[in-house]
Design a protein around this nucleic acid. Structure first.
Length: 360
DNA sequence: AACATGCGCAACCGCATCGTT
DNA sequence: AAACGATGCGGTTGCGCATGT
């Protein structure tokens, strides 16, 4: 039963690779190609674990890898993709030819994350830090208020389950498997556009079923973090804090949101970076997500980096940073206008529930 | 010049999933 | 069906170099 262990971990070499070892891997791959990495150390004459060999090849020796600095275009792409899929480095790297997930991850952790923080942007939510803090405060207040009132949330939710579904994020595994993964796969690896996905009744059914069952069945658990509470459903679950935060999903079947995804391509969007076929039709979907970080980055490049004070002046839930002309803007955008109108409408209907939350 | 600190990157670790026995 | 290894992935660590004091 089973297989023998790939290597004797106690007796294999670890640490940095020598040029000689690299040469052996390269020679082996040139002769035999890639496959069964557990056999590589033995066949190539290396005293290394097969896993280590695979890593060395994947992250460093592969001939198609680029070892130069990241370009501005790549930087923008990483920001946008991170905003969309979170810290799914392999997915992001798949969009950047010649880059590995390790490269992207390192670049994010050493450069981009700090850059965003310096600009007053939360690198997890891509929202202004002041906004994130405000949200967290309001969520904390709501939580304690609900505890004090012993509010019968379940009865309330059953009364309007299709409308507003609070979702505890402490257990995101189900969401990842049934929602995030399929969407990410569609978004990143196929010709399926967001508009097609939006049209998919099957997706919506899975989405509703999953989110509802998740909310009604899950017991909250785990540790705490204060940084991230208002998230797009496409952020990486692994990046979520475990604090049982609440995120609302607008699930009103009467609101034809997918129509807007189909048709609203902002005229001011810089379309160059979306010219690849896999991005066709995806532009609008990006607008569903706050673009504060991307806009701010552009401002920095234009020499007009906003100060934190400017960011905190914002109000109302949409990005408060002035967008440069080339970045997409919510101003005058039918989709966003409708969302805002809907927001106001629902705020009137459910003032307690909606107070302080963001809708995208 | 010597030491401390910070930074960037390569490598490792641990987990989840899938495939094999 | 169960046990186990292979693989893929994201998070973390450690080392070498650069910069600051």
């Amino acid at each position: 039963m089973g297989r023998p262990p790939c290597c004797d971990k106690a007796n294999v070499k670890r640490g940095s690779w020598s040029p000689d070892e690299d040469a052996k891997i390269l020679a082996y791959v040139a002769n035999h190609g890639i496959g069964n990495w557990t056999l590589v150390p033995q066949k190539a004459g290396l005293n290394r674990c097969g896993k280590s060999c695979r890593l060395r090849w994947t992250n460093y020796l592969r001939p198609d890898l680029r070892h130069d600095n990241f370009t501005l275009e790549e930087e923008e792409q990483i920001l946008q993709l991170h905003q969309t899929v979170g810290s799914r480095w392999s997915l992001i790297a798949a969009r950047l030819p010649g880059r590995t997930d390790n490269d992207v991850k390192n670049y994010w952790n050493t450069k981009l994350k700090k850059k965003l923080e310096k600009m007053g942007i939360d690198p997890i939510t891509h929202k202004p830090l002041a906004q994130v803090l405000t949200e967290y405060e309001k969520i904390s207040q709501l939580k304690s208020r609900n505890q004090n009132l012993s509010l019968n949330n379940e009865a309330m939710m059953r009364a309007e389950p299709q409308h507003i579904i609070p979702l505890r994020l402490s257990n995101t595994k189900v969401m990842e498997r049934q929602i995030v993964e399929p969407l990410c796969k569609n978004f990143l690896t196929t010709s399926h556009s967001w508009s097609k996905m939006a049209q998919s009744q099957a997706n919506e059914a899975i989405y509703q079923e999953t989110v509802q069952s998740h909310f009604f069945s899950e017991a909250s658990s785990s540790a705490s973090s204060a940084s991230c509470n208002s998230l797009t459903p496409f952020s990486s679950p692994r990046s979520y804090p475990s604090e049982p935060s609440l995120v609302r999903f607008s699930m009103s079947s009467s609101f034809p949101w997918n129509e807007y995804i189909l048709d609203d391509t902002p005229s001011t969007m810089n379309t160059d970076k979306f010219s690849a076929p896999e991005f066709q039709g995806n532009v609008s979907a990006n607008n569903l997500i706050p673009e504060a970080s991307f806009s701010l980055l552009n401002n920095v490049r234009n020499g007009s980096e906003p100060r934190l004070g400017e960011v905190t002046q914002a109000k109302g839930g949409i990005s408060k940073v002035d967008h440069p002309p080339e970045a997409s803007s919510s101003n005058g955008h039918p989709f966003v206008e409708t969302i805002l109108a809907r927001h106001e409408e629902m705020q009137t209907e459910f003032p307690d529930l909606l107070d302080g939350y963001y809708e995208y």
